[in-house]
Amino acid sequence: MPTVVSVENVTKVYDSGFEALKGVDLQIEEGEILALLGPNGAGKTTLISTICGITTPSGGKITVAGHDVITDYRAARSLIGLVPQELSLEPFEKVMNTVKLSRGLFGKPKNDAYIEKILHQLSLWDKRSAKVMELSGGMKRRVLIAKALSHEPRVLFLDEPTAGVDVELRKDMWDVVANLKADGVTIILTTHYIEEAEAIADRVGVINQGRILLVEPKEDLMQRMGQKRLTIELQDAVANIPDALASYDLMRSGDGMALIYSYETTSSRTGITTLLSDLQKAGLQMKDLQTRQSSLEDIFVDLVKEEA
C-alpha cells in the first residue's frame, strides 16, 4: 500500500532541554489503522503534534501525501483530522456551530448534508442544538471526532480516544473507527490500552522514550513474539520437577500442583506429545490441561522492559 504519512528522522527538543523525540522514522500506509503504543511520556502526543502542526519539529522531515508539513502546510494540514486527548471544546457553543467552525477553518465550503451525516453517524444529531457543556464526557469525545471529520480528512489522528471512556462507549468508538476505515480513512490512534490495539489495529507501533521500537502487522507481531503456555494440573503435588522431565522447559507452580510448559507456536514441533507421554512414564497423574497465548500486553511489557 502507498505511504500517506512519512516521518523521517524527526527530533524534538523542548526549550527545557527535554528530548521528546529522538529521531523517529515512521511510514503510515494509506487506509490502515495504526496503533501507537507506549507508556506515559513516551512521545506519542509529541509525535502527533509535530505531524499536525501544533509543535514545530527540531529536525527531520514529515510529509502528508507528499506535502511537507512545514513548507507546504496548507496542503498537508487540510488532509488531516485531529482528535486531541483533552476534551478541549468551547463550553457555551452549540454542537452544530462548533462542528461548522471546524469545517470553515479547514477552508471547506458549507455542506449541511455532510455535517448532518457525520452527526448521525456519531449519534450526535439529537444533541446538535445542545450546548457543549451540557454533554457527558463520552458525548464530548464524539463532538471532537465530528469536528475532526467535518472537513473530510484522509488521515485521522485519535490521541487516546478511549481514555476515561466506559466499556460500552469504547466498543461504540471502535465501531466508529471501523466504519471510517471502510470509508477509506487512514487512522492513527495512540493508546495505552493494549486490548484496544489488539481489537482494531492493522499494524502496531511501539514507542518508548522518544524512539519507535518497532512497527509491525499485529498478527506478525503476536505470532513472532507470541509464546504459548501449557499448564498441566496434577492430581498430587510434586516437590520438584522429576529428573526424567529435566530436558523440558518446565516450571513448577508455587504449591506444586501444576507444571507450566512454555513453547513457541511457530516452531514445527511443539513437543507437547512427547512431554505428555514422558509425564505418564514419570508416573504423574494429570487432572486438567490449559493453554494460553501471550497477549500484546505481554509483548509490550517485554519490549519496554528490554529497552529500559
Binding site: 499536525c52 502542526g53 501544533i54 502546510y73 496548507r74 496542503a75 498537508a76 494540514r77 487540510s78 488531516i80 485531529l82 486531541p84 483533552e86 478541549s88 471544546l89 468551547e90 463550553p91 471546524s102 477553518l105 479547514f106 477552508g107 469536528k147
Partner: peptide
C-alpha cells in the same frame, strides 16, 4: 485557556 487553540494551530491557515 480552554485548549481549543489546537484546532487553530492544526488548521491550514
Amino acid at each position: 485557556f480552554i485548549g481549543t487553540i489546537y484546532e487553530l494551530l492544526s488548521a491550514p491557515i
